[in-house]
Design a protein around this nucleic acid. Structure first.
Lengths: 239, 239
DNA sequence: CAGTGGTCTAGACCACTCA
DNA sequence: GAGTGGTCTAGACCACTGG
């Protein structure tokens, strides 16, 4: 299992440990690139690749001529990282449970057909799930998965982690996803499932995801109880 | 003006031109890295830096062993790039106008004081603006700017582009910003200014921004008419 | 002006895709 | 198996920060 990931990822991992353990304190400068080259016995390019990774994760920031520093503010749910709800909650030490409310094989709506670039006649699984963190409902999720890619999909699988199934069982490699953020008032049904009033706006996220080979494997509409689940990104300015 | 930007940015710029002009068509593969090295007479590392840039802008995607391709879907408002409303609309060929509704110097609220890390007694400018694209109201924005950083701020400036003032006039270097996305129902006042019903949810974005030296220079709450202004990101999965 | 991160090069080998 | 992008090295010079 401990196979061989690229060097720069191994270095990034070690650095992440230093940060999480507090060896490198928030707001403080980490060792210089030259020192890191020494410490990890890798080239400078590799060190910089590792730092770039942690920078994109929001853990580090750099200041030319001065040094590299540990970010002092942490981001709750970094939208720029495509993480599953399960992973996200585990990181916060919360337990995720799922309640599958609908599980049907059906013809796609026009919207779904387009989003997944389906051929005529292809069917999709439609799965509606209510998702809980430590027993509290935070999310209602409508997912559409092409039958062609997931002929073995089961109710059981969707009661667990969807991404774990796709990556670990199916061995698909997820590349990225396009997500749109839309504020909406929940329908009565969704409001009830989230435990909020119908007059409380919720955040709807529409996303379709890509595999490494460019094919689309899911279309999902997610409703977040936004009082309890904050969406934050750190966006850089280009010059 | 044409001074000397880093080589990889010049290369990225040329490549961006090829994409925008359609010389490299959407969905098609661009030349291989080896060919680009030839074409632009730079090292491979530099080519890869340029490609990385365009990849982060959502213009390209790569597939190991196969090639690098032009993205076929375009993103309307890439949240991961910190762009000003003015820049964003100009790119779409729309004309931006601003109506400054409030312009006062005042003591900060506790929330603003914390977000901007102000000392006791420091004052901030509070500016409320209504912002239009081709005459249509799309945004209401409440901005808080520290007096200490902008002692020369004028009503006139805020009628134009805030970021142009900060970068071109003040010569400050903007690094990045932390943004939170919150669905809300607009107050009566804001609903009116956006030309929507009070029962239409709008997207509120709270952000604070950083300069290159790590200092915070603005806290802003923005209300978007979300029917007309779509928020989309492309998020990558880490492995 | 010493030290930091930013950029750049030439060359090498590896992992993957695809005919 | 030829060709692609992915990783890695050693070494160099530049631009900026800060005492």
């Amino acid at each position: 299992m401990k196979a061989k990931s690229p060097l720069y990822q191994q270095v990034a991992h070690k650095m992440r440990m230093f940060i999480e353990s507090g060896t490198w304190a928030p707001g403080e400068a980490i060792p210089t690139e030259a020192q890191l080259v020494e410490e990890f016995s890798v080239s400078r390019v590799t060190v910089r690749q590792a730092v770039k990774l942690l920078q994109e994760e929001g853990l580090l920031w750099k200041r030319q001529g001065s040094g590299t520093y540990v970010q002092s503010e942490k981001i709750e749910h970094n939208m720029y990282e495509l993480k599953s709800f399960t992973e996200d909650m585990k990181r916060e030490g919360k337990e995720v449970t799922n309640k599958v409310l609908t599980f049907t094989l059906q013809p796609p709506s026009e919207k779904v057909r387009e989003a997944l670039e389906l051929e005529d006649g292809e069917l999709v699984f439609y799965v509606r799930r209510q998702r809980f963190a430590d027993g509290e409902p935070l999310i209602v999720e409508d997912t559409y998965l092409p039958l062609k890619l997931f002929p073995d999909l089961t109710y059981e699988v969707m009661s667990q982690s969807k991404y774990a199934y796709i990556e670990d069982v199916k061995q698909f490699k997820i590349a990225d996803s396009v997500q749109e953020f839309i504020p909406v008032l929940p329908t009565k049904e969704i409001a009830e499932m989230l435990g909020v009033s119908e007059r409380t706006p919720v955040l709807k996220v529409e996303l379709y995801s890509f595999l490494m080979d460019g094919s689309r494997f899911e279309f999902t509409e997610t409703y977040f109880k936004s009082e309890e689940y904050r969406f934050i990104i750190r966006a850089g300015r280009r010059h």
